[in-house]
Amino acid sequence: MEGTGLEKTIGVLNEKFEGEVLHAAMLYDFPTITLKKDKIIEIIKFLKEHPDTRYHYLTTLCGIHYPELNQIAIMYQLHNMMSGERVRLKIYLPAEKPEVPTLTTVFAGANWMERETYDFFGVIFTGHPDLRRILNVEDMIMFPLRKEFPLEDQVREDKNDTMFGR
């Protein structure tokens, strides 16, 4: 079941989006497909509606920062509950200006997931109905999950460098 899901999905993708697939592999038990970023929303919509794949459920969506590549990846995880098949789609965006169309037009549940990704990575989801920070305070200036931002709160005096090597 596992291996065929990947080949089937690639086959379906090649029907309409020839040349969009950059890389495809099974990572552990999970088919992972890296795609070009431009048509990602159409592709997800197509996979959702195509009778062979029917990925009708958006499991999750998140960002990953790669500072050495200067890129931010967005990972979409789709699921077909009837057949139990899942697929992970990845796109890479430039870290200076990460922009991608919103998925809320396809899945209503993408709304907060995209807001979270915006909050953490500063990815702009164009066309999003309400793209604001969701977890952090509104006047925050950093995008905390990017690697260059520090984890710790900077106000503590009890943890100094001599004691804890920070």
Binding site: L151, E152, D153, V155, R156, K159
Partner: peptide
């Protein structure tokens, strides 16, 4: 004291 969450989003103790 903020506990294990010494992070950017957590107040490091309400006595602040």
């Amino acid at each position: 004291s903020g506990g294990i969450f010494d992070t950017y989003s957590v107040l490091q103790g309400i006595d602040r």
